[in-house]
């Protein structure tokens, strides 16, 4: 087991290097640079000397290979440098945004699990009944509806509903407060985006749970269990659902990793100062160091979540061993 984990962690190194090289090159292929955007985007006049100075300050005049080696050496030392836009350490920039992104990801995952697994299982058990049709409809709608659109609509519904019922429109706070400082304010900010993201996430997982359950229900050991006279509840909970969860767990892991940095539009819609919004900002500002660090972070999150998923397999299915 430990050998397997070590092997997986070592595999992260070439993955990171590949991603580093790719993002390094891609960012520099975009015309323009951070200094031009910083000084020229407001439409006013500015001193061209300031651009030359900015380039020199940020080390952009150095040969590309030197910049790349510097970047890789930084990764080795876990030093991602400073943001070219703000001048703050990249870790400060990311750390400021990570809590809200992680919180939304966790909440959305909890919502998704709470909806997807029971409904997916019920849908499979009640295959081709009206319950199954309703659940499938719910799932298809969730898959087809973009989260940001759902976010916009849900905000409008909340505003209009509160306006009509209480006489004054209400919307979630637009300024983040950590949960340990003010849990109610924090949750009232995070809940709506978590629900809108969680719905799509639940829809995908629900479909996966249903198809996996349907497959498992046809297995010989389920038939054996029924033949043994086990009650249906036990068959489903102990034998079918646990085995059907394998692909669902994989999906949940990948989705969770995606949620950390991928809620680009949803974070904008709800004014969440998260990693997704930072990603867009970094690319728009052509902030190479910050974008590179964010890509690295995303790669690391994906690798870790995949590792966790793999380890969960062993718990869910004792036949799987990594030695």
């Amino acid at each position: 087991m430990y050998r397997y984990i070590c092997k997986r962690i070592l595999l992260v190194i070439p993955t990171l290097l590949g991603a580093a090289a790719l993002v390094f090159v891609l960012m520099r292929l975009i015309p323009g640079d951070v200094c031009v955007v910083r000084l020229g985007s407001s439409g006013g006049t500015f001193d061209p000397k300031a651009i030359a100075l900015c380039h020199a300050e940020l080390g952009m005049e150095r040969p590309l290979i030197v910049q790349f080696m510097d970047f890789v050496w930084g990764i080795v030392r876990l030093d991602f440098g400073t943001s070219m836009w703000s001048g703050n350490p990249v870790t400060t920039e990311i750390w400021a945004r990570l809590p809200i992104s992680v919180e939304i990801a966790i909440l959305a995952t909890v919502i998704a699990i709470a909806i997807a697994i029971p409904l997916g299982a019920v849908s499979a058990i009640k295959q081709n009944t009206w319950i199954d049709i309703l659940v499938r409809l719910f799932a298809v709608a969730g898959t087809a509806t973009p989260s940001f659109w759902l976010g916009l609509v849900s905000l409008l519904i909340v505003l209009n509903f509160t306006s009509a019922v209480f006489g004054a429109p209400w919307m979630p706070p637009i300024e983040y407060v950590p949960i340990w400082q003010d849990p109610i304010r924090n949750l009232s900010m995070a809940l709506l985006p978590a629900v809108t993201v969680g719905y799509r996430y639940a829809a995908v997982s629900m479909r996966m749970t249903r198809s996996a359950m349907l497959e498992v229900m046809q297995e010989d050991y389920i038939r054996t269990a029924r033949a043994k006279g086990l009650i249906n509840k036990l068959i489903i909970n102990r034998h079918a659902l646990k085995n059907a969860l394998l692909p669902v767990v994989t999906l949940l892991g990948i989705e969770f990793a995606f949620l950390i940095g991928g809620l680009v539009v949803t974070e904008q819609v709800f004014n969440l100062n998260g990693v997704g919004r930072l990603f867009v900002q970094a690319v728009q500002n052509q902030d190479y160091t910050l974008t590179q660090a964010l890509v690295m972070l995303t790669v690391i999150i994906f690798v870790i979540s995949n590792l966790v998923v793999d380890l969960l397999y062993a718990w869910l299915d004792p036949r799987i061993r990594y030695s």
């Binding site: 323009g32 031009v36 955007v37 020229g40 728009q284």
Partner: peptide, 10 residues
Amino acid sequence: PTGPWLDAMR
């Protein structure tokens, strides 16, 4: 986007 827009003009 702003960066390429400025770059093309410059």
